[in-house]
């Protein structure tokens, strides 16, 4: 039960309170670019959620078993090569390169899957699918997981379940943000926006007001934590 309540806390915290777009500012490019229609926004949100969960799983496994200081696989190989050495192998300098390639691979996998099994969705996405690689949300999630797996003295350790929950709900939070924005922008088409503000500028201003609204969730996780402990 303790484990489930910590999962619930992670989920709510990352979907609502520390929302990817409105608190951490990541995922802004698709947020501005794809939020014109609700169905496209929903599709993009779903695709990002799927890719981020896949990428998070891959990066957790890589970080825990290969890259982190003292990781099992690399140290086992090192001790086979030079049994007398007491050094601890730390490949964490390669973290960023490995993560970005895992993300590119995950996007490639999703692309191939969609092209084969759901070609209509593949055509609907067009050029936006490969652009998910440069979506900051996914790399940000991988970096957060890295912080919690690398055994630094600050953050709590996250096992695979917590990491996947974090990733999935980060994607869901992003989807929430982009769908809300799409709903507002669809209505905005009928409004008289001043010419200099049309396009990205008015989107940012609306995002500011939405961020203000989402700030109302702050502190919820502390009370929720207290509630779940009882």
């Amino acid at each position: 039960m303790d484990y489930v309540s910590s999962l619930i806390l992670i989920a709510i915290s990352t979907a609502l309170i520390n929302n990817m777009v409105f608190h951490w500012f990541v995922g802004n490019c698709p947020f501005i670019g794809v939020s014109r229609r609700v169905d496209m926004a929903f599709g993009m949100g779903a695709a990002v959620t799927f890719v981020v969960s896949l990428a998070a799983a891959l990066s957790w496994v890589c970080t825990y078993f290969i890259l982190a200081p003292g990781a099992p696989l690399t140290n086992w190989i090192w001790h086979k090569i030079s049994p007398q050495s007491t050094a601890i192998v730390d490949l964490s300098i390669l973290n960023y390169i490995v993560y970005i390639f895992l993300i590119a691979a995950a996007v490639q996998l999703v692309e191939m899957y969609l092209r084969k099994f759901v070609p209509s969705l593949y055509k609907a996405f067009g050029v936006y699918l490969p652009l998910i690689t440069t979506n900051c949300v996914i790399l940000f999630v991988c970096l957060e997981i890295m912080k919690h797996v690398s055994g630094a003295s600050g953050p709590v350790f996250w096992d695979l379940g917590k990491a996947l929950t974090y990733a999935a709900f980060a994607g869901i939070g992003f989807m929430l943000a982009i769908v809300i924005m799409a709903g507002i922008r669809e209505d905005l088409d009928h409004c008289d926006v001043p010419v200099p503000l049309r396009g990205a500028a008015i989107t940012m201003i609306i995002a500011g007001i939405l961020a203000l609204a989402f700030m109302g969730f702050t502190g919820m996780d502390k009370n929720l934590a207290g509630l779940l402990k009882q």
């Binding site: 520390n18 003295s153 600050g154 953050p155 702050t218 502190g219 996780d221 502390k222 934590a225």
Partner: peptide, 13 residues
């Protein structure tokens, strides 16, 4: 002592 816990917004160390 080094201690940490949940603050209002995020973890406090």
């Amino acid at each position: 002592l080094s201690a940490r816990g949940q603050g209002f917004a995020d973890v406090v160390q």
